[in-house]
Design a protein around this nucleic acid. Structure first.
Lengths: 107, 107
DNA sequence: ACAGAATATAGTTATACAATGAAATGGTGA
DNA sequence: TCACCATTTCATTGTATAACTATATTCTGT
């Protein structure tokens, strides 16, 4: 068994890690949100930059960013008049690399 | 930028890979479905085994398995009276290992 | 051909998500 | 302090998901 719940047998499984992981996957499992994450990558980007790179309404992006923040996928801080967003956990970027390997056939 | 869409600039981005990836993430982003995947791992398992290991109704599991099949995360084949399910793409298991690294703090 | 096991499907109901447009907040520079 | 830019919040509406129960289908062994 792939151990998202290390050192447990099926019937004794702690659900905790499953739940954390599935919440994060759910948060990332929306095309706009995934695109937001791709666009941010290792950078710190102001919301309006994300809006223009991703391409939908500012309000819509703002709400998706909020979801990513709630789910602790990204963080943001104010700098002057702008809010800068970045991916919170380097492991998330790792995860995205794994997705790239999985879903991006080599040209 | 993390390249889920290799060799493209933001405005020229093909959406294709983003869409594939987000569909898969969405499919995996439900606790029961993630648990199903963990339980199957590298094995081939009959539905009833999954039911008993995951622990909800047969009907519910069947429907989630169906979703995983539609989204091409798992495949299944009949052997005698049983339907055996397995994870379709080894890359999905890789992805799950990456999730494990991300979401399972070491004990 | 029949009984029973294994799995799938359907119908229903409740809940969650997504997109939109309009309005509100908070910071900045003249 | 006023006008403006960046961002958030709100209300609404439509659509998608989830769970449940009951029923149907398909195979197996006798």
């Amino acid at each position: 068994m792939v151990k998202l719940m290390p050192d447990t047998k099926p019937y004794e499984m702690k659900e905790e890690n499953i739940n954390k992981a599935s919440k994060a996957l759910k948060a990332m499992g929306h095309p706009l949100r995934l695109k937001i994450l791709c666009v941010i990558g290792e950078q710190e980007l102001p919301v309006m930059d994300i809006v223009s790179k991703v391409g939908t309404t500012q309000s819509n992006i703002s709400q998706h960013i909020d979801i990513l923040r709630e789910k602790e996928i990204i963080t943001s801080r104010r700098e002057g008049s702008k809010i800068l967003c970045k991916v919170r956990d380097p492991n998330i970027l790792k995860l995205m690399e794994a997705m790239q390997a999985t879903f991006c056939p080599v040209n």
